[in-house]
Simulated scan of single mutants.
Amino acid sequence: MRYVQARVIGHVQGVGFRQATAQRARELEVVGYASNLEDGSVEVGMAGSDDSVSALIDWLQTGPPASCVDRVTSEEIAPQQWSAFQTG
């Protein structure tokens, strides 16, 4: 199991980014969360197989059609106790 926290920077709020991320995460069987941050970015915590987490990070580079992603940063984090993918 791989645990990662990513930050997505660009035009990613008000465009359905969190909901689309949750849908893609569920398709990949990844658990975690997507939350808007005050600076206009979106934070995504995720846990799943190495391939699934890598696939979600790749997807975050583009996001849903209405978004405009400038940059994605990610780092490995300590194990978390997520049981589903949530938006907040």
Rank of each mutant, 00 (worst) to 15 (best):
M1L: 12
M1P: 10
M1E: 07
R2Y: 09
R2E: 15
R2M: 13
Y3D: 12
Y3F: 15
V4R: 06
Q5N: 12
A6H: 05
V8L: 02
V8K: 03
I9P: 01
I9C: 04
G10F: 01
G10N: 02
H11W: 13
H11Y: 13
H11R: 15
H11A: 14
V12Y: 04
V12K: 05
Q13A: 09
G14P: 04
G14F: 00
V15A: 09
V15N: 09
G16C: 05
G16I: 06
F17G: 06
R18L: 04
Q19K: 04
A20R: 13
A20S: 15
A20Y: 00
Q23L: 12
R24S: 03
A25N: 05
R26Q: 13
E27V: 07
E27W: 00
E29I: 06
E29L: 10
E29Q: 13
E29K: 14
V30K: 01
G32T: 04
Y33S: 15
A34M: 00
A34T: 02
A34V: 06
A34L: 01
S35V: 11
S35A: 13
N36Y: 07
N36L: 08
N36M: 05
D39G: 05
D39Q: 00
G40A: 08
S41H: 02
V42G: 00
E43I: 12
V44A: 02
G45L: 08
G45C: 10
G45H: 10
A47V: 05
G48K: 09
S49C: 06
S49W: 03
D50N: 07
D50M: 02
S52E: 08
S54P: 02
S54T: 15
A55T: 12
L56R: 09
L56M: 10
L56N: 05
L56K: 04
I57K: 06
I57A: 03
I57N: 01
D58W: 07
D58H: 14
W59T: 10
W59I: 06
W59S: 05
W59L: 05
Q61M: 15
Q61K: 15
Q61G: 15
Q61W: 06
T62C: 08
T62F: 13
P64A: 11
P64L: 11
P64V: 11
P65F: 10
A66T: 13
A66I: 09
S67Q: 14
S67T: 10
C68T: 13
C68E: 14
V69I: 09
V69D: 07
V69N: 03
D70S: 14
R71T: 13
R71E: 15
V72W: 04
V72P: 08
T73L: 12
T73Y: 03
T73H: 07
T73S: 14
S74C: 06
E76G: 02
I77T: 12
A78T: 15
P79H: 04
P79F: 08
P79Y: 08
P79M: 10
P79E: 07
P79K: 10
Q80M: 14
Q81L: 12
Q81N: 15
S83D: 10
S83H: 11
A84P: 00
A84K: 11
A84H: 11
F85I: 09
T87S: 03
T87M: 05
G88F: 07
G88D: 11
G88W: 01
G88R: 13
